[in-house]
Amino acid sequence: MSALVPVKCHVNGRVVETMVDARMTLADFLRHELGLTGTHVGCEHGVCGICNILVDGQTTRSCLMLAVQAEGHEIRTVESLSDGDKLHPIQEAFMEEHGLQCGFCTAGFMMAICDLLENNTNPSEDEIKDVLGGQVCRCTGYNTILRAVKNAAAKMGSAGA
């Protein structure tokens, strides 16, 4: 057992203050300590992007951060996207465009897309691909995910206008 260390952070808008095993990854902490199992883990070595979450609004591999490193940060996971029974525009767009099949990688994509679209509701194809390129999906062949991003951008752009 490693040393237990304190951590205090915000997760999906709520304060979390607890002790964690120093070696625990943030992905494991979110999933197994906080029960936020919507974040999935695909490779645990930072390549597949499935465990993407937002740390202070920026896409981050949660397998490449220690839980203790969340100290002082604002964490957002897929559980934060929908509002009650209303889906987030990105979720709606994925549904409309069939941007998912097995759904295992989808949270990672949606969080990265959230980072992109919160800063830019009119991204170019290259900007979208740069974000999507950091993650693998084994089911869709990406065509429908690209369409979902464009659809979501339109939804978020018009909502913000």
């Binding site: 559980e79 929908s82 979720q91 989808t106």
Partner: peptide, 14 residues
Amino acid sequence: DASLLTGRTPFIDD
């Protein structure tokens, strides 16, 4: 999809 998109579908490690 609704369940998958909101992270509520119970995969085995959940």
